[in-house]
């Protein structure tokens, strides 16, 4: 296959996996609609006794009782998980062919479109890898919608045709630094989703006394909080490596300074400090729940702003802007 054909294949794979993610969402919808009534009615009570007794409920009660007369809902859930795997495989195919489409062949994360494509895949992969261990079935509908929306935004607004790698990006550190940054971004995003759901559920509980509807079927506040912490505890060292070790080493080779307060570096630092504050507050000041979730979302906001905002708003002022030719900017000023 020629490079051009690979590019077409990649684009088609993106469309196909987006379609399958949509099917995943529909399957979850079907599972929700066909869920057994009595379980739905019992759910809020189960959650409230669970938290009141100081015993955290790690998995949604609905899942525990799935065996009892909810065969159809169970089937839909299995279909949804299988489809998620299928979508992830097609998504991966889109990434691989995107890399093969370039001449010479390269890693598929050299511009915003490719970064987003890879980061969403990392989110899905992290989800599937931890699906069993963290009992994440409840997260699947949110995740499929999230990934679908991000992919749509990516294709509509960020798409760029495949071009060869610029000289400045031809370095092994492109693989190490950017891959670590993508992984951390994906994992921080998972943590952020948990924190956001915590806040939504928390609000609904204070308002109505108990969580209702779908919110009742997701884990308890306590479990959400702990899950969010685990994601952040994983992401933070990875981010530290990406932004404060691999990044500076590459910057030292490429630009002759390991830290130059370039806007991208400033915001990577801000993100690091905010998440450090999150972990610090949890560990020493005992911040949990709502306050911790808000800090986590501030951190996620700075992370995404660094990705989107710096490239678009500070383009001319940042050496990390992949809109303008780097080598020109550093001469022309």
């Amino acid at each position: 296959m020629s490079h051009d054909q690979f590019e077409v294949l990649s684009n088609q794979a993106v469309a196909a996996c987006a379609f399958v993610y949509f099917l995943v969402f529909l399957s979850h919808l079907a599972a929700w609609v066909t869920r057994p009534r009595e379980v739905a009615a019992a759910t809020p009570a189960a959650v409230s006794t669970g938290t009141a007794g100081g015993v955290a409920v790690a998995d949604p009660p609905a899942q525990d009782t799935v065996g009892g007369g909810s065969d159809r809902a169970d089937l839909w859930k299995r279909i949804a998980v299988s489809l998620t795997v299928v979508a992830a495989v097609i998504h991966l195919l889109a990434l691989v062919t995107r890399g093969l489409a370039a001449d010479p062949v390269r890693v598929p994360w050299s511009n915003m479109y490719e970064f987003t494509l890879t980061a969403t895949w990392v989110v899905v992969a992290l989800f599937l890898v931890t699906y069993k261990r963290f009992k994440l079935a409840w997260l699947a509908p949110v995740l499929s919608v999230f990934v679908l929306v991000v992919l749509m935004v990516d294709v509509l607004f960020l798409y760029e045709p495949v071009v060869p790698l610029r000289d400045a990006l031809q370095s092994p550190w492109l693989v190490i630094h950017v891959l670590a940054a993508i992984t951390a971004t994906g994992a921080f995003t998972m943590g952020g989703i948990c924190s956001a759901l915590y806040l939504v559920k928390d609000r609904s509980q204070t308002k109505h006394g108990t969580a209702r509807g779908w919110l009742a079927s997701i884990p308890s506040l306590d479990a959400l909080d702990r899950l969010a912490y685990r994601w952040h505890a994983f992401s933070f060292p990875v981010w530290t490596f990406a932004a404060l070790i691999a990044g500076p080493i590459w910057a030292e080779y490429a630009w002759g300074r390991y830290w130059g307060w370039d806007p991208k570096e400033v915001w990577a630092f801000i993100t690091w400090v905010v998440y450090a504050g999150y972990l610090h507050a949890r560990a020493t000041a005992g911040w949990k729940g709502r306050r911790a979730a808000i800090v986590a979302l501030v951190g996620l906001a700075t992370l995404w702003f660094n990705f989107v905002g710096i490239n678009f708003f500070f383009g001319a002022g940042s050496q990390h802007s992949y809109a303008a030719e780097l080598i020109v900017r550093s001469v022309g000023g």
Binding site: V266, W267, I270, V273, H280, I310, F314
Partner: peptide, 20 residues
Amino acid sequence: MRTALILLFLLALAAVPGSV
């Protein structure tokens, strides 16, 4: 610890103008 935490968030905030 509380002061350390405040200073940490202040550091993040103070870094912002340098990017603008």
